[in-house]
């Protein structure tokens, strides 16, 4: 079992990180807004973590204090939140695919900036980021509670006025407006919350990856997070979490299958070198066979309903 945790410990951390990034994209999606800006905030948070821990905090040898990491996450989250408000107010007037495109442009502009600034280390980026933990698995001490907290937060959000307002905007923005909901306010709110989460994950991820550069948080990442949310299911916060975890684990699962000696060489070869072919195929099949995503609220609603309905039926 130790071997298992040593091998897959960091995969688990990546799964948790990606689950939160899936959530950060899901938040504006709750209001029907397709924003692909999360990787931009993730990158910003990462640079904040990287710059603070290599240039601002001078820690002596030994482990980097966890409290500093938490502080970086706070700063990363706040900075992302502020940027999100600034970008969100004009951008969220756009709808559908236009908002998606504007946020793609935002991510690209940030990427080009980070390639050119001195503080971000240009193309080489920032390396030698100090480690707060001696084993990757221990990142779960921070990432795990953060994910649980975000999930609890989402659980609550879906049940209070703000959450219902978001759903109302998703279903019909005009009607929601007529009911006295301020769509812009709620849309920017969801966008900003998502950005704060992505920024915090970024700051932590900079330590986890040991290095940070302009290759983090690109258009590819935008699409990956969207895939998490849509394959997992975009009608409940459980969807993006499950989607992110499955899709992050999938290439590693194929890597593992490719390592099984009993399989014929050609099959192993396909699992190893053609692993992404299978990955792509599963994404296509996923969208076709799970158009609502793997996790839909119906999964538990139906169960509740059948329980409630059955006694009535027996009377007939």
């Amino acid at each position: 079992m130790t071997d298992f945790f040593n091998t897959y410990g960091n995969l688990m951390v990546l799964m948790v990180f990606n689950a939160m990034l899936g959530l950060s994209l899901y938040l504006p999606l709750m209001a029907g807004q397709l924003s692909l800006a999360s990787p931009g905030f993730y990158a910003l948070g990462g640079y904040i973590g990287a710059v603070f821990s290599t240039k601002v905090f001078q820690s002596s040898d030994g482990a980097f204090p966890v409290s500093y990491v938490l502080l970086e996450m706070l700063v990363g989250g706040l900075a992302s939140g502020v940027l999100a408000i600034v970008v969100g107010i004009p951008a969220l007037r756009l709808r559908g695919i236009y908002l998606a495109l504007a946020t793609i442009a935002f991510v690209e502009i940030l990427r080009v900036l980070s390639l050119n600034l001195t503080i971000t280390g240009g193309a080489i980026g920032i390396f030698g980021i100090p480690q707060p933990f001696n084993r990757p698995l221990k990142y779960l001490y921070i990432a795990g509670p953060l994910l649980l907290f975000s999930m609890f937060f989402m659980y609550r959000l879906e049940r209070i006025r703000a959450g219902r307002a978001l759903t109302a905007i998703r279903e019909d923005e005009l009607a929601a407006g007529a009911m006295g909901i301020n769509p812009t306010y709620y849309k920017v709110l969801a966008f900003t919350l998502g950005a704060i989460l992505a920024g915090m994950v970024g700051a932590l991820s900079a330590h986890f990856l040991n290095t940070w550069n302009a290759r983090q948080g690109t258009f590819d990442a935008s699409i990956t997070y969207l895939t998490f949310a849509l394959i997992g299911g975009s009608r409940t916060f459980v969807g993006p979490v499950v989607g992110a975890m499955l899709l992050t684990a999938l290439p590693e699962l194929l890597r593992f299958l490719g390592g099984i000696d009993q399989l014929p060489q050609s099959v192993r070869d396909l699992f190893l070198n053609g692993r992404l072919i299978i990955f792509g195929l599963l994404i296509v099949l996923g969208t076709i066979f799970f158009p609502q995503g793997i996790i839909t609220p119906r999964l538990w609603e139906r169960r509740r309903r059948t329980k409630a309905v059955r006694p009535a039926e027996s009377n007939l």
């Binding site: 699409i223 394959i231 792509g280 996923g286 969208t287 158009p291």
Partner: peptide
């Protein structure tokens, strides 16, 4: 009648398949 966004994702899956193939 699925969400149009889904076709975005499935076309992306196709791109991944073709490139790696």
């Amino acid at each position: 009648g699925s969400d149009r966004l889904l076709s975005l994702v499935s076309s992306l899956g196709v791109a991944v398949v073709i490139v790696n193939l």
